[in-house]
Simulated scan of single mutants.
Amino acid sequence: MRESAAERHDRLLGLVRERGSARVSDLASQLGVSPVTVRRDVEELAGRGLLDRVHGSVSWPQGAASAAGPGGSGLVLGMLAPSSTYYFSEVIRGAHEAAAGAGARLILRISDYRPQEDQARTEGLLSAGAEGLLIAPGWQHPGDPAAFGDWIASLPVPTVLLERRPTAGSPLDGLDRVCSDHAHGVLLAVRHLVDLGHGAPLLMARADSPTALAVRSGYAEALAVLGLRAPQDVIESVPAELAPDTFDQAVRALHEAVHSGVATAALIHNDVDAIQVVQRLAELGVRVPDDLALIAYDDEVAALADTPLTAVAPPKRDVGRHATELLVERLGQSGGAPRRHLMLLPQLRVRDSCGAPLS
């Protein structure tokens, strides 16, 4: 199976962490890829604060490398994330900044959304010296926590879950965790559209991540809170690059709902899908915001659309920061302190895609 960019990033970070610094040409040889590929990877990782670049070489960031120095805690923290890009790049950045601020060293493993590999990658973090763990399992489907999660509750070091809410009453429910309150984020979006004079918006969403599933359940909760009924069933979406025909069917379903007057507003998870939906709707004669008020969920690239998209912005960087601070605090305690479930509230960033209030 061809190695993904996330897996290559994981190996690159591991090499630099072990050596402290390395030349780009040496990394290319070790990784079995071209120097151009390594330079591109290094630029991306350095942009997220995970590496430092100096004259053809890269080094482990000073804040992490000096953790055992004067004033440093000497702690080594391990982080498992499902991806190093899109949503989780900001979570990782927040964790890295908080670790450096505490004088701790953060080491990273990426699962590439393969939950069956989470345990092995976490064992790698422990073997590398991690004294505490930040875990965001690569779950995608509702059954994944039960199938691939029991091992987390028996880890031998303090552990904080990131952006994951296990089943209530399960062993994982007793762990510390820090999450975005996606139900609150969806409520902000639906209320904003209703305040502009629209009826209940349609939801177009994926079902391939915990965030997507939380947006779906949050949508039902928001409608109940506001005393609204969904204008029709949720429009099932998939990544356009993986299933273009299925994605086009979803766009056409949204087009039909607008054309027939079923809805004048929509919430779409995620940003990338929302931008592609707007482009395809324009080809079909539906304009945003003139014919459809639209809000995206995630706010990674929503502001870069031709018509900047209003978007719900989960506090991704703060999730990483607060989780790391909680883990450092937990490592400094002798035990017995109550576990914590910390929910951080998303914000609604209003741009142009909802238009003016309806008269």
Rank of each mutant, 00 (worst) to 15 (best):
G20L: 10
G20R: 11
G20K: 12
G20V: 10
R23N: 00
V24W: 00
S25M: 09
S25N: 06
S25Y: 00
D26Q: 13
D26Y: 00
Q30K: 10
G32A: 06
G32R: 12
V33A: 05
P35K: 08
P35M: 07
R39L: 04
R40D: 08
R40E: 11
D41M: 04
A46F: 03
A46N: 04
G47Y: 12
R48G: 05
G49T: 10
L50Y: 08
L50V: 06
L51K: 07
D52V: 13
G56R: 07
V58Y: 04
W60H: 11
G63D: 14
G63L: 11
A65W: 15
A65T: 12
A67I: 05
A67D: 05
A68H: 12
A68T: 12
G69T: 09
G69M: 11
S73K: 09
L75K: 09
L77Y: 07
L80V: 07
P82I: 04
P82C: 03
S83N: 09
T85I: 01
Y87K: 00
F88A: 01
F88N: 04
F88D: 02
V91G: 02
R93E: 13
G94Y: 11
A95Y: 07
A98E: 04
A98R: 02
A99E: 03
A99N: 03
A99G: 03
G101R: 11
A104F: 03
R105A: 14
L106G: 07
R109H: 10
R109A: 14
Y113L: 09
E117P: 00
A120S: 14
A120Q: 14
